[in-house]
Design a protein around this nucleic acid. Structure first.
Lengths: 353, 353
DNA sequence: CTCAAAATGATATACGTCTATCAAAAAATG
DNA sequence: CATTTTTTGATAGACGTATATCATTTTGAG
């Protein structure tokens, strides 16, 4: 049973190939009666364009851009690596990937950079965004040019992108709280959270989720007021050190945002009677801290799946095809025993002989 | 910068297209000197075959088979759904997927079914296998016909397949133990494990990993002798019920294998002072048990990623291309808060407008 | 040097779709 | 009815590769 071609459709509809092509590709100059016949034949035969043949014919090159924050953030280093790795492989498939770096989470830079994308003859873009109205104009312009737009890791205004690829941060916070509660084994405790900024939506949501679960399911656990850290490692280190000196009854720490290197340093200097400790994102220093026993858990947002999904979704949008099945994307709990292989680039491939 | 074609290679090598084709495709009748020139040009230009163009020209259809156990096992129901879902999408890409069901983990059936695959004009097969010498002959025959063979979920003899796609069960057991230890918050306890069969390699390995971590990192926890269950729900239910009557100091349960429905029933009838409970595989009843609070954790082997990887690897093997980057495959910890959407087939796709 | 075998090159056609052009047929308008 | 406009069909060639055939050239053996 072979796949129907457009010739088959034309024959079944009783029109010429040229007319069938005009209908399928909405080229115009086709009578309504002929349009209906072709549409019917497509439905009956289950015709699906052979995208590979079309791409060959057109000399298609997919031009994608990933707009990611620049700067010293280990998580986005991993995102960049993942994009680069996929890009290296895809070049043989006529997929060109441009990585555009913008100042981290700055609306002005983001607005400007998105506007600049409209002049770059792209087919699709994945943007680490912000849900800010000022991005709507440039996004509209991009999409008006037929560019597929998806939000990655941090969303864009919803009506102005075709998909969001990232975790639910309330879920991430709830998951962290579940683990903290579990580690208290029904006992009482005092838990300290660190937040980079309550203005950062992901931080606010994670904290919200964390509170929900602690309050509803672990009422014996007291939540201390969050400490604001601006995601600065040095600040986290100082605050953690002081905190642990002053609070002998501290049972757990949860860092909602970044700056983990400072937290890890403070904990490492404290010794084995440290509080239970949960951080986000599996990056080199959090991985090492897990292995060294300085922290207990990492809640990860799976950059490997996020980037894989971004490419898959963009490709489907550009080809105007249904999105194929993709791996689930949920906040993932890593302990020291279930860590993926490292370095990423080496053993991400299955062992193939 | 466009991708080089074989015409470019021929020109650079100073040979005809026909000769370059003969070299690339190992058709023979080419002098060593010409072979070297073509190889050199390929290297210099970075030529990679346009697989899509070649497939179009050849009228290629990928014929894949998945050999999976039949019978009432919820995990393999999910594997089957994942395969079916991917298959539905791939049919438009000239990929035909046949699902072959064999008696669960029976060497004879497996041997027979693998042998039968050799007569079916396939390009690639993924097999839920066993590491048994009796499978070597049929696998050898398959591969001699140029069929790509990968092990899925349960491995095949290593020299007789090109890749294994599945979790490390020692890691799975270690992860479960880490969580059980964590849930004891440094306190003492008594932990009961249930094992389907010590003859099942995955069960033996999970138990091994579990023991490793409890013994080395949680010395206050006493491990009771494993209870053999044959993966039968009724047996598990009876044994669990009796166990909890007789052991008031039981602090945790860990089921290495299947039969979770029985375990869950016994726990559900026990009430809120139940022991901490860990099972494997996120399937409808274990999901519900998480949500109902009857169990605490599910360690899942990610059928979504396993099937996604199987298709990716098989495709790369058939095309004789490098395997592209794929999502990491590690035992994943699910609590009630980080569950992927259900039913699978509906929300596996990103929200696409 | 001659002849046979091996190597090489040229050529044509296929795949399914896209793109473009022009001729022919049908429909609409005055 | 004549003319114009719209619709339709036919045709050709492109994309990069595979496949096949046959002619030509080169190489090796006697």
């Amino acid at each position: 049973m072979s796949s129907p071609t457009l010739s088959d459709v034309a024959r079944a509809a009783g029109v010429s190939y040229a007319t069938a092509d005009r209908v399928i590709n909405k080229r115009g100059n086709v009578a309504d009666k002929s349009i209906a016949k072709v549409r019917d034949a497509v439905e009956t035969l289950g015709y699906v364009r052979n995208v590979a043949a079309a791409n060959l014919s057109r000399g298609r090159v997919y031009r994608l851009a990933f707009l990611v924050p620049k700067g010293a953030n280990a998580f986005f280093d991993i995102i960049r690596e993942q994009i680069q790795h996929a890009s290296d492989h895809l070049s043989a498939d006529r997929v060109h990937v441009k990585m555009v770096e913008v100042s981290a989470f700055a609306v002005d830079s983001l607005q400007y950079s998105i506007a600049a994308l409209a002049h770059q003859n792209l087919d699709g873009v994945a943007i680490v965004g912000l849900e800010n109205k000022r991005l709507e104009g440039p996004l509209d312009e991009l999409r008006a040019k037929g560019v597929a737009v998806v939000g990655l890791v941090s969303d864009l205004p919803e009506e102005f992108r075709s998909a969001y690829i990232g975790i639910d941060n309330i879920v991430a916070g709830r998951t962290a709280a579940r683990m903290v509660g579990m580690a208290h084994a029904g006992g009482a405790g005092h838990v300290q959270t660190f937040v980079g900024s309550m203005d950062a939506r992901d931080h606010a949501e994670r904290l919200q989720g964390f509170r929900q679960v602690i309050e509803s399911d672990f009422p014996k656990i007291a939540l201390l007021d969050p400490i604001m850290t601006k995601d600065e490692g040095a600040l986290l280190q100082a605050q953690t050190t002081q905190l642990m000196k002053e609070n002998a009854d501290l049972t757990a720490l949860y860092n909602v945002g970044a700056g983990n290197s400072g937290l890890i340093k403070a904990i490492a200097s404290f010794g084995p009677a440290r509080p239970f400790c949960v951080v986000h994102e599996l990056v080199p220093h959090s991985r090492q801290a897990l292995l060294d026993g300085h922290i207990d858990l990492v809640i990860d947002q799976r950059p490997d799946i996020e980037v894989n999904r971004a490419f898959t979704v963009l490709r489907a949008l550009i080809d105007e095809r249904e999105v194929p099945p993709m791996p689930d994307l949920m906040p993932t709990i890593y302990v020291r025993d279930n860590l993926p292989a490292y370095p990423l680039t080496e053993l991400m491939k299955a062992k193939v002989t």
